[in-house]
Design a protein around this nucleic acid. Structure first.
Lengths: 347, 347
DNA sequence: CATTGGATAGAAAGCGCTTGCTGTGACGCT
DNA sequence: AGCGTCACAGCAAGCGCTTTCTATCCAATG
């Protein structure tokens, strides 16, 4: 029924070994033989059996990419960039690799399960994106898995994740970015800044918030606890948190959001509350996703080089680029000042 | 070095066959034996060898998802929904499956290569999303591949793609949606409507445009060829096409875009041209992606139930839902009237 | 002309798992 | 008591490929 290597070998009048070598191209095969084999492959429409060759060769051409939410462009952009570099069809690399994008939904258990699944498939490499969860138990479990994977020959790279001892990391300077943003707002004259944070247990959330607070501290502004609201990384969360901030202190003149999506929710809440942006309240986001420039007014935010970071992580995962010195590369964000931020009301 | 089934068997004092049966749970094993085996698995931190079992069982637990652009939420949303249904970790289904998201970038060759790669992996199922390319040669090649896959036991489902004889299809009524949208605009009094189409060779482009023209025809409006510009499904394309439309006929009072992303570009171009939306020119999108509601004014568009369609496709692919009658289910879009559309200038 | 060695091709031993078929006791039936 | 029936467990034959080692051929060398 299905065509096997042996069938091709028979048709080309060579041994299976030779066919295998033609297909893998890592052993001298006479040109005439090669052609005969290739012709037979073509005639028979032969398709290699992936599992069988993975078993025999003890490696597969699968590359895992773990993301929190595939529907979020933040992850989509990174995943796309990683994939373009791992040498799938159309990529520049040699062998044809299959990217396995795994959607963890931010759940620690799923993250672990997916890592096990990838280990089971003997993945060639794994790239984990997005912030980590700061639960020591989970962190240890992930670390353990990553070590196992590495030992089994799987290359592990973190992209936009805090570094761990177990893997090479391309990490974003969320702290610095947060600081930049808040400094900008303070520079405009703002003194009462609301902050909409992400989920409390995520590293990304903490780092961005730390940057924000560092900027406040540097300017000698006391951070009123009422000015910080935790939420999720989605639009609705931004909407609700903004209403909450307004309730707690109607006097805030700026809202800093955990990311652009949250910022859009904040804008909507402000508008619905009859406030103008930036005349009454300034808004800032984070990430500079493509849609941020289309908000009205366009969002002031911190641009993260998502595609570049993903591409680099992909190349490192494929061994086509050297790992950064010390195994860690920190990528800075760039402040994008746009229409959503301005001087405070009455300034 | 690596732990194998045999090691587990030895430790649990049973045969490898028994271990395999415990792990697959499709053969009676005494409770006491099972426990012993499970304990051994745990002690040894055994991880099944995916390729080996795929080879032996002649099926894998990989499910392919083909998308045009993973960074585009349109595809991200569908991919996420499909994945949540195929029973990966956290999904409701039984076995743990790995979703392989393949980014074709809209390229026909890559599409074919990925299908071959999935065939090679003996994927359990494949879901193709997004519009197809209307090149007969390519269509035939894809059809051929799909037939091969089906014959090999891979379930093939199309999601948001025009039906083909080779597969079950959940398809969007792009034509009807396009018509709805333009009817709405005509109803508001518009008579000079610019249309920014997607790439000319895509089915989605053609269907939406056909709907638009049908609405025009029904209202007795002659479609001036100058009013249609082809482009890509991205923001820049919308921006440039809008300027082009304005150049060709400054008198247009509405712009219908191929999708929401294009519509945002159109809005930007109009704004940059000093035109107000919808006072001077109305704008309409398509898809109702999450950001569309955050545009200012919010985008009038056609909502496509991306997540529902994806979920359904996923369930069908997993054999957990019956295929629709005749193998084709058509999903309609819903007109979402929002702020970006209004009566024409001077009405 | 015998010898050496490079270039190819083949034989065969697995890779680690699944599964059809074959035991083997224990149980219940007549 | 005798025998068919179950419920489990094990044996062993692959699944289709890779790769080491070996065999062969032929040109080049002394």
């Amino acid at each position: 029924m299905t065509v096997t290597l042996a069938d091709v070998a028979a048709r080309a009048q060579v041994s299976p070994a030779t066919v295998s070598r033609v297909l893998n191209g890592n052993y001298p095969v006479a040109a005439s033989t090669r052609e005969r084999v290739l012709k037979a492959v073509d005639d028979l429409e032969y398709v290699l059996n992936g599992p069988a060759s993975a078993l025999a060769a003890a490696t597969s051409d699968l590359v895992g990419i773990l993301v929190n939410d595939i529907a979020d462009p933040f992850f989509g952009i990174m995943a796309g960039a990683i994939q373009s570099e791992i040498g799938g069809p159309g990529g520049r690399a040699g062998g044809e690799r299959l990217a396995v994008v795994c959607n963890t939904g931010g759940s620690p258990e799923r993250e672990l399960t997916y890592l096990t699944l990838l280990q089971r498939q003997r993945a060639a490499a794994v790239v984990l994106t997005g912030g980590a969860i700061e639960d020591p138990v989970h962190l240890a479990a992930v670390g353990n898995k990553l070590r196992k994977l590495t030992e089994a020959g799987t290359r592990v790279v973190l992209c936009g994740r805090p570094p761990t001892p177990e893997a090479i990391a391309i990490t974003f300077d969320n702290r610095g970015g947060g600081q930049l943003l808040t400094e900008h707002l303070i520079g405009l004259g703002h003194r009462r800044l609301g902050y909409i944070a992400g989920p409390e247990e995520r590293t990304t959330t903490r780092h961005r918030l730390e940057g924000h607070r560092a900027a406040l501290a540097a300017a000698g502004i006391e951070d009123d606890p009422r000015w910080t609201v935790y939420g999720r990384y989605d639009r609705l969360s931004g909407y609700e948190a903004t209403l909450e901030l307004l309730r707690r202190d109607p006097g805030i003149t700026a809202v800093v959001a955990a990311n652009d999506t949250v910022a859009l929710g904040a804008c909507a809440a402000l508008r619905d509350s009859g406030l103008r942006i930036p005349d009454d309240v300034s808004v800032a986001g984070f990430d500079d996703l493509p849609f941020s420039i289309d908000a009205v007014p366009a969002l002031t935010t911190v641009r993260l080089p998502l595609a570049e970071a993903g591409a680099r992580a992909g190349r490192i995962a494929m061994g086509r680029e050297e790992a950064p010195h010390g195994g860690i590369a920190t990528v800075r964000g760039e402040l994008m000042v746009r229409g959503s931020s301005g001087g405070p009301r009455g300034a």
